[in-house]
């Protein structure tokens, strides 16, 4: 049974992929909520205002970014953002010198804690900026990560 569903699944995704490559189906239409403009913005400011409606953030000491000081491989940079603030609505992570700085935006539900951890690609040595939206305010923290081998392109 499992093999059957597997076959069906791969067939279905296969047709979708064909439709996408033929240009019949724009992949952007599938997800309406995905903030395309913010992810394609070329600067942190543009990404911020597109994503959160404002590009002014207040530096905060309550946000903690855990990332290596020196990352040997820019393709995999583990980054953890944690904050003790309450009422955190979202955490956005930017890599300042990437072609498109916005790496990810985490929308946190009511019960989620101000903590996310993931791995990022970094093109070169740059600041990692975390922007926390809490109670309508934008708070930010940054940390520099030195990259020896870039992780975008090759």
């Amino acid at each position: 049974m499992l093999r059957r569903t597997f076959l069906k699944g791969s067939l279905a995704t296969g047709t979708v992929a064909v439709a996408v490559s033929a240009g019949l189906l724009s992949p952007r239409l599938v997800l309406a909520a995905w903030p395309k403009a913010a992810f394609e913005a070329k600067s942190v400011q543009a990404g911020l205002s597109s994503l959160l409606g404002s590009d002014t953030t207040t530096p905060s000491t309550d946000i903690n970014i855990k990332a290596p000081d020196i990352a040997e491989n820019g393709a995999v940079v583990p980054v953890t953002v944690s904050t003790g603030l309450s009422g955190v609505e979202s955490i956005a992570v930017f890599v300042e010198k990437n072609t498109s700085p916005l790496a990810g935006n985490f929308l946190l539900g009511e019960r989620a804690k101000g903590y996310v951890s993931t791995r990022l690609k970094m093109r070169k040595t740059s600041n990692v900026i975390a922007v926390v939206k809490s109670g309508g305010k934008l708070l930010s923290a940054r940390k520099e990560v030195k990259v020896t081998i870039g992780g975008c392109g090759g």
């Binding site: 909520a33 995905w34 903030p35 992810f39 393709a75 995999v76 940079v77 583990p78 953890t80 890599v95 990437n98 498109s100 916005l102 790496a103 990810g104 935006n105 985490f106 929308l107 946190l108 539900g109 019960r111 989620a112 804690k113 903590y115 996310v116 951890s117 993931t118 791995r119 990022l120 690609k121 970094m122 992780g151 975008c152």
Partner: peptide
């Protein structure tokens, strides 16, 4: 009930890892 929604761009590493906490 949804506790977390992540919107990702291509700058997330290959074979992504994700961790978060909730109460």
């Amino acid at each position: 009930a949804t506790v977390m929604t992540a919107q990702w761009g291509p700058a997330i590493s290959k074979n992504p890892y994700l961790s978060f906490q909730f109460t």
